[in-house]
């Protein structure tokens, strides 16, 4: 399996770059993955990433994009719970890209 090296420590990822072990995640790892994705982490990015971690804690799944958008709208307000806002933060898909940075598995679909 591929690994990423953060602060001299290797972390296992799958072939698409998602962390294999949820427990491996920390903010340095998140920053490293974000950089590889060309995402400059701002407070707004962290808000979504932290939201996702909490969401996973509660439901044990990574949300699909519409589920994420609605849940964020409910908790953080309608100005953030819309896909335009989320895509600006995570251009390659708020669910997939933000989950990757949050150290969660890729949201499920067919595969």
């Amino acid at each position: 399996m591929p690994t990423i090296d953060v602060n001299g420590k290797p972390y296992e990822t799958d072939e698409e770059g998602y962390l294999v072990n949820l427990a491996d995640w920390n903010e340095d790892v998140a920053n490293f993955i974000a950089k590889a994705e060309n995402v400059e982490m701002s407070e707004n990015h962290w808000e979504v990433v932290n939201f996702l971690r909490k969401y996973y804690d509660e439901y044990q799944i990574a949300p699909a994009v519409r589920v994420l958008t609605k849940a964020i709208g409910k908790q953080l307000g309608a100005d953030k719970g819309n896909s335009q806002y989320l895509y600006e933060l995570f251009p390659y898909g708020p669910a997939k890209q933000a989950c990757k940075i949050a150290g969660l598995p890729k949201p499920t679909g067919c595969v």
């Binding site: 439901y59 044990q60 799944i61 990574a62 699909a64 519409r66 589920v67 499920t108 679909g109 067919c110």
Partner: peptide, 21 residues
Amino acid sequence: RLALMDRAARQWGSTATPGED
């Protein structure tokens, strides 16, 4: 990975999306 899909389908009725969407 398969367990994750299982949990999603149990909550949504589909691995992809809840029916309401």
